[in-house]
């Protein structure tokens, strides 16, 4: 790790920085959620290819999402978000129907209760809803329960490990089980992992996790074995609408920029790219997204930061503290010398 931005900030070549000399271009995912039809072929293809165990047959009630979140045995997760707002110029045809208050808040509360007791391999799901101060369509204090639904949209999105430029899991792994591949992706080797779990707290997205019966940490490998044979990952191959695009990262970034511009022109002003920016807290994601709302809506952290961002300054502070301690100790000895 020799580059100036080995720990934080834009880094052009993570594979090279990790020690690969000659290596192929950095590969990644661009998940365009605007064309996701929520079919979950990605979830099934991933499980079939990688032999991942079943992860809980339980009705979560999170719209059509019964997976809940990424975890040790869920490496693709399709989220469904029902919202009382329009999508671009689409019309859900609700105006003039005799509709009443929305169900989404009630659903959220019940869902939260159900999630707490749902069986999950290796981790907890989100708990009770927290007011993050999102803008709402009510005037403060004006809610009387007689609001009516006038707009509706249903967002669908396939989440995956971000294969960050600066990967928190990779940085903290003490055994070397996690490593940076020649494709710039991040892979955990199950035959080396000792299940210490440091990586779980190191990931700013909450992706990697441990299997309870097994103990080891598992996550998406971007089908490393398929990449080595020149194939695309299973999820990208299965996706019927090309919501999951796979290819060289810079090509994907150009596609994404074009797609974003096209959506903005079509009136979908809330479309935004997430994880595309090399200046962000993880140096940009190897798997980045086009979202149709703020990341929090999808259960994604709005400002993910790799924990090693502060590594240098932590060491500097530790160094300063150590020197100060030495200096003070020395001063004590010098001062209190001959008595």
């Amino acid at each position: 790790m020799t580059a100036e931005n080995s720990f934080y900030g834009p880094l052009e070549d993570p594979a090279g920085d990790a020690g690969h000399r000659e290596h192929p271009p950095r590969m990644g995912f661009f998940t365009d959620t605007s064309v996701c039809i929520g079919c979950k072929a990605c979830e099934v293809a991933c499980k079939e290819w990688n032999g991942i165990p079943e992860d809980g047959i339980d009705l979560l009630g999170m719209s059509f999402d019964n997976t809940g979140m990424l975890g040790a045995s869920s490496w693709r997760h399709v989220a469904f978000i029902e919202q009382e707002r329009p999508l671009g110029r689409q019309d859900a045809g609700l105006a003039d129907l005799p509709v009443g208050p929305s169900s989404t808040e009630e659903a959220e509360e019940v869902v939260a209760d159900a999630l707490e007791v749902a069986r999950r391999g290796g981790g907890d799901l989100g708990t009770a809803p927290v007011d993050l101060g999102f803008p709402s369509f009510d005037l403060p204090g004006a809610g009387t329960g007689t609001e009516t639904r006038t707009q509706f949209r249903w967002l669908m999105s396939s989440d995956v490990c971000k294969h960050c430029t600066h990967a928190g899991c990779l940085d903290v792994c003490p055994t070397g089980a996690l490593f940076r591949t020649e494709f710039g992706t991040v892979v955990v080797q199950p035959d080396i992992c000792n299940g210490c779990g440091y990586c779980v707290s190191g990931c700013p997205y909450g992706v990697i996790d441990r299997r309870p019966d097994d103990g080891r940490a598992w996550k998406c490998t971007m089908c490393y074995d398929r990449l080595r044979d020149g194939l695309e990952p299973a999820c990208a191959k299965a996706c019927p609408t090309d919501s999951i695009q796979f290819g060289p990262l810079d090509e994907l970034r150009r596609n994404a920029d074009r797609r974003l511009a096209a959506l903005h022109e079509a009136g979908v002003t809330e479309a935004q790219l997430y994880g595309r920016d090399p200046e962000d807290g993880v140096g940009g994601d190897g798997a980045f997204f086009l979202l149709l709302d703020d990341p929090e809506v999808y259960g994604l952290p709005p400002d993910p930061v790799v924990p090693t961002r502060d590594l240098m300054s932590m060491w500097k502070h530790a160094g300063v503290a150590a020197s100060a301690l030495l200096a003070v100790s020395a001063a004590v000895f010098v001062r209190g010398g001959r008595r």
Partner: peptide, 17 residues
Amino acid sequence: PYLAELQPELFVEVSPE
């Protein structure tokens, strides 16, 4: 298992009203 866990139970959809 991979399909059963995606839609694990029979349900009935009703409007909030």
